[in-house]
Amino acid sequence: MNNEAAIGHAHRDDLGSKMGMWLFLFTELLLFGGMFILYASYRYMYPDNFKVAAMHLDTLIGSVNTILLLTSSLTVALSIAALQRKQTRFSVYLLMFTIVAGGAFLVNKYFEWSTKIHHGIYPKGPEMANLSDGEVIFYGLYYVMTGLHALHVIVGLVFIGFMIVFILRGKQTFDNYQKLENAGLYWHLVDIIWIFLFPLFYLIH
């Protein structure tokens, strides 16, 4: 029954825990949602500037990063499946792969940002004065949105790191894996946000 979970503190309520996680994901979604509203508005106001600015982003790095995140999402999903089948080692390896892929994503991001900064394109940077209003805003949004996203990647990686520890210590097992599932949900959300950021910043031609 639906209400059984109410009986007693000690009773574990996996569905409730998952619900809490989903609700939290909505807040993240709307946090980025606010920025997507700004992006849409400014792209509408400065269509040509946005095009010019987007040309200068490296589509290759963007694509590689997309594949990295998609694959890391896959391995999280697989790792839950592995745990359900009591293949604990395999599950841990898959999570480790996720961490590696997520780390690689961040490294790429680092190089991407530093090239831009090297060229003087950053808020208040020397190149910014030569750019049109729309381009300045484009880069402003670019830094804030990808920066905030990268922050979420880092948080997600920390979560997943904890999950590895939990699994190794037997705190997450084949019949008790809601924490792992929640960490997975978070990671997939980070992936989804990138799925939208990628075409919006790298693929305007």
Binding site: L70, L74, N176
Partner: peptide, 28 residues
């Protein structure tokens, strides 16, 4: 609810979905 009695999705399905995602990325 807590024992997750639903049948567990297989590895295969996930991999197919992933392939689809990569394919769509290539297309876009």
């Amino acid at each position: 609810e807590n024992t997750h009695t639903q049948e567990h999705p297989g590895y295969g399905l996930y991999i197919v979905v992933w392939a689809g995602l990569v394919g769509l990325t290539t297309i876009t």
